[in-house]
Design a protein around this nucleic acid. Structure first.
Lengths: 241, 241
DNA sequence: CGTGAACTTGAGCACGGTCAACGTACGTGG
DNA sequence: CCACGTACGTTGACCGTGCTCAAGTTCACG
């Protein structure tokens, strides 16, 4: 199914219903997200379902596709020659990834669990962006947000201890996924992924979650869900106490 | 001197010699850097000399100026409510900083030693970029490079021990500043700045430099210069051994 | 059920942090 | 020119967080 991506993206046969929604007005800065723009201009993008722990692209691969996570979770990783791994970030449902201003990817993207993706042509987006200042701003903005996120994460890895890192991580996840009733938070990724994202080991993750639990800050029904019992305490940890 | 910046940047009185060099051709991707473009289009930018440990802007300040480091070194910091500090990166002579796609700065910029800056109007750059695809690409490229750098630094903070971090730091500095004859490397910043950049303490920096010295990898004439005696060994440490 | 992967917990250790003392360089004023 | 003060750097002794290694436990899935 992957091999059909390029074809379908550059194929205009099924362009019947598209014109009505393809043009994004240049004037208003409003609600049109980059994601929506991609869906509107490339409505027949390929969808693919991938099993867990599948590599979507690796460091060095060409950047001719942009992806939207329809369902599931992605991790963006850097692998070192010595076999170490760092998880730069996770990409959640409804978010895009693979948007980068270089000809080669500088990280790999892998599925965490089962994932459904929509893939879009980078070349077509670029051509559309050339004549549309709003879209350019959306792209700029997406990359800038990634930069801000990375810098925030640098602060976390540079200054925070394990409890603070976990608190920061849970809170950011809660902001993105949203909390279910009772402050329930689903953790799509495993302990090892969290460890590699926070610069800790899997054992330290377990122990620190336990410490937070004993402190009455979180509750742990099972390994993949969490109840944020005391949000103010978590926030205090994240901005540091 | 700072108060005259805005005035001079928007002032076209002295436009006599400019037209010949102001226009950057839209077609070739070649040698024109963003820095050169700024110098060409805003030749009468204000220069200011600042003493060491001066804050140029703080988190939350408006992003209406872009700066070029004419001489000296800048550090880009994040300060936390609890009084901790992280040095995101250093900006060396000939490099620009302050270019960000948000209305407010998300970090502060401070002089390390005595510094001479040139400041340019962000608004004017944006107006020029609106009609010039090459300049837009330069801006994009500058921000993307910052993102790549941040992600590389995340890998360092997430995976490397103190020796590896120092090796990576020295090598990157050598690539940017360049090595003088005999592999001599000047360190413009103090130990505390290096520590806050690498997520270590000042004592660990001292001890680890000593360890590298005893291992025959570097030589330390004094606190602000370094001889990279064994570059291959440093590289092995940086990519990990 | 049985099997394997993921998670958890414990015991011991090491790296880097903390605290404290000392050394060095530079700048100022006597 | 030296005496002094201050900021920065270095070194040592001790401690604690988080890592390593190893043994269980739980869970999902065949």
């Amino acid at each position: 199914m992957q091999s059909t991506a390029r074809l379908d993206n550059s194929n205009s046969r099924f362009s019947g219903p598209r014109p009505a929604i393809a043009v994004v007005p240049d004037r208003h800065d409003g609600p049109v997200t980059l994601c929506e723009f991609l869906r509107n201009t490339q409505p027949f993008s390929v969808r693919e379902s991938l099993p867990r722990n599948t590599t979507i692209y690796s460091e060095g691969d060409s950047t001719d596709q942009i992806y939207e996570v329809v369902s599931g979770t992605i991790r963006l990783c850097k692998h070192t020659p010595g076999g170490r791994r760092h998880v730069l970030d996770f990409v959640l449902a409804g978010e895009i990834f693979g948007l980068i201003e270089h000809s080669e990817h500088t990280m790999s993207a892998e599925t965490v669990g089962d994932v459904t993706l929509a893939s879009y042509s980078r070349g077509r987006l670029d051509r559309l962006a050339a004549g549309n200042a709003v879209v350019r701003r959306r792209i700029q903005s997406a990359i800038s947000d990634n930069l801000l996120t990375a810098q925030q994460q640098l602060l976390i890895l540079g200054c925070q201890d394990s409890r603070e890192r976990l608190a920061s991580f849970f809170l950011r996840l809660a902001e993105r996924i949203g909390l279910e009733p009772g402050n329930r938070l689903e953790l799509p990724m495993g302990r090892q992924d969290i460890a590699d994202h926070l610069g800790l080991t899997i054992e330290t993750i377990c122990r620190t979650v336990r410490i937070l639990h004993r402190a009455g800050v979180v509750s742990v029904p099972n390994a993949h869900e969490l109840i944020l019992t005391d949000l103010p305490a978590l926030r205090a940890l994240a901005v540091e106490g």
